[in-house]
Design a protein around this nucleic acid. Sequence first.
DNA 1: AACGATTGCGGGAACGTTCCCGATAAAAAT
DNA 2: ATTTTTATCGGGAACGTTCCCGCAATCGTT
Lengths: 340, 340
Amino acid sequence: MKQRITIKDIARELSLSTSTVSRALADRWDVNPETRKAVLELAEKLNYKPNLLSVSLKQKQTFSVGVIVPEFINAFFPEVIMGMQTVLEPEGYQLLISQSNESAEVELKNMKALEDRMVDGFMVSITKETRDMSYFRYLVDNRIPVVFFNRVAKDIPISHVIINDYKWAFLSVEHLIEQGCKRIAHLKGPDNLDISHNRLKGYMDALDKHHLPYDENLVVNCGVMMETGILGAMQLLKLPELPDGIFAINDPVAIGAMKVLKKNGIKIPEDVAIAGFSESKMAMIIEPNLTSVEQPTFEMGKAAAELLLEQMKTNCKIAQRTISLEAKLNIRESSQRCTS
Amino acid sequence: MKQRITIKDIARELSLSTSTVSRALADRWDVNPETRKAVLELAEKLNYKPNLLSVSLKQKQTFSVGVIVPEFINAFFPEVIMGMQTVLEPEGYQLLISQSNESAEVELKNMKALEDRMVDGFMVSITKETRDMSYFRYLVDNRIPVVFFNRVAKDIPISHVIINDYKWAFLSVEHLIEQGCKRIAHLKGPDNLDISHNRLKGYMDALDKHHLPYDENLVVNCGVMMETGILGAMQLLKLPELPDGIFAINDPVAIGAMKVLKKNGIKIPEDVAIAGFSESKMAMIIEPNLTSVEQPTFEMGKAAAELLLEQMKTNCKIAQRTISLEAKLNIRESSQRCTS
DNA sequence: AACGATTGCGGGAACGTTCCCGATAAAAAT
DNA sequence: ATTTTTATCGGGAACGTTCCCGCAATCGTT
C-alpha cells in the first residue's frame, strides 16, 4: 500500500479545513460552488481516492459481502456468482468468495474470517456435510444479513433462493417413464441437503403417479461429484436385475455413472436411459449427450443478491422469504429411445 | 455490521488502559503475566474480535490481495486460485477475486476497484484483449506488488509464473508427427497473449525439426473458448486439402473443433489426430478422449502466491523473476493411431 | 543510602474519514 | 437600526486500533 493523497493534502493545498473538503466531495449543499469546484479539480489532478478503510470504520459498513460456496471447479457456482456480481457491483459492493471444499470445518473457518473482515452480509450454499447450524443462528441473532442459495439448510429462518427441485425432478422422472422405463434407479444426494430430499420426493411421486413400485434398493446414496457417481453406478451393477433408467442428483454424478455403464458395455439409452440435473457444459460433450435439468444459475445469483440487498438495507427487519425459480428440462440422447 | 466488543470494553471492565490491553493481546513483554491472563480470558469470554479495519488503517496494509482472472467458468483458474489460497491463507491474507470476462475494460475497472480497497498486491492473468499496459506501469511505479500468472504481458518488468509453453507445445506437435501426421494445423490463440506466441513457436520448431513445411494456411487465428474452436475448425474444413492433425491452443478450442469434425463425419484420430492444451475435465469425457498437456494449475497458484508474498515482504525491492513450470503430456485416444 | 536498571502500566497522538456543532459574515426581514 | 435568516466554513470528537513516550514502583548494585 503506497502513500496516498488524503483529504488533508487537499485541505492544506487550498487552505481549507478537512471538513469542508469532505463536504465538497460529498456534494453537500453548504459549500460554495466555487470552492467545491476547486476541491474537485484538485482531487482529480492529484488522483485522490478516498481511503475506504477509514470510511468503513466510520460508517460501520464495508460494502463487501461474503460468498460461501462448496466448490467452484464446476461451472455452476461461478455462474451464480456472476449473477450476484451484476446486481451487487453497481451498488458498490465487493464480493469476497470463499470455497469450503465441501468441508463443514473449512466453511466455518472461512465464514469467521469473513466476519472478522466485517462483511456486511453473507450468501451461502452449504457443504454436503454441514449439520451444525449454530453459527448461522448466531448470525441471525446478531442481525447479520444472510441468504442461502441452491443448497439451503432446513429449520432455520433464513431467506433463500432455490429452484423448484421437486417439480423438475418429478418431470425428469416422468420423462424417463414416458420413454418406457419401468425400473428407475435414483442416485441420491447427501442427506443434509434440501435438494436431495426434494429431488427424491419428486422421484418417488413420479413413480407413484405412474403406478410404478418404489424399490429402495434402487435408491443409492451418493455424493455430488463424478467419483461418487462412479461408485453409485457400480453399486447398481451389483443388483440382481439392472435398472432400465437412472435419475441422478446432478450432472457430475450422472456422467460418472455413464462412464461405468459404457465401460460395462451397457447401451445408453437403449439398456439404461439416464437423466442428470443442473445442466453443465459436460452434458453436451459426453456421448450420448446427457438429458438434464437446466437451472437458471445467473438468475439464482441475481435473486440471492437482491434478497441480501433488501436485508442489508432494512437491517434484517424484513421477514424471511423463499424464492423458488423455475427450470427447464433439456431432453437429449441419453434418455431418448427410438421405441418411444 | 453489528455492535462488537472492542478493546475499550475490555479495558473498562478490567480498569486498565487500552494500551495495556492492546499489548496484552499482542503478547508483548512489558505486561504482567497475570494481567495478560485476565485480558485474554475476558477477551475469550466476550468473544472479542479485533476490528481489522482499524488495524489496517493503522498498519497501512489490509492483508488482502486482488486476483484478476479473465473467467472462472472453466476449471483452470479456479484450480490456480485454490493453489494461491493454500499459501496465502495461512499468512492471514484474503483473496479478492475479480473476473474480467475477457474484457480489458472490465479488467481495468476491477483493478481500480480493488486498488480503492487497498489490496496489498495483485495477481493477474490478463484478458485476451489487454493491450494497454499503462495501469500496470502505474502499479510498478508506485511499488504496488503485482505478479502475472499464466497469461502474461510482454515488455513490462513484472514477475510472472508460466509453464514452459514452448517446450510442451513442441512435444505435443512432435507427438502428432510421430503418429504419422504430415499436415498439422494449429488453432492459434490471441495475439496479445504470450502463450499464443510460445505455443506457436513450439509448433513451428517441431515442424522444422522433422522437416515438415510450415504452411501459414494451416495456422488459423482463434480465441480461447469452445465457440471459437468451432469457428476455427470450420475454417480448416474450407481448405482444399484437409489437415491430418490439429494442435489447438487449449482444450476448449480443441473440443469445439472435435465437435465440428465429428459432425462432418471425419474420424478422430484416423483422419485427423488432435491434441489440446491445459488439461480440463472435459478431456476425459469427450470421445475420443482428448490428448492434452496437463498444466500444474495448483502449483502455478502456489508459485504466484509465493512470488507475491516475496514482493510484499520486501516492498518490491526484489528483482523481477520468471518461474517456468514443467507440464505433462497426457496421450489419449484423440491422437493415438493404431498404425503407429 | 543512593543510584541506575527493570518491570508494568497509562496518556495521547495518529491512521483518514465523517459529522455534529458552533462561528462568522453577509443578506434579508423586522 | 436591530434582529433573524442564510450561506460558508472550521473545530474537534469519533470510529478501533497501535505505538511512542513517559512515569512510578520495585529491584539489585555499589
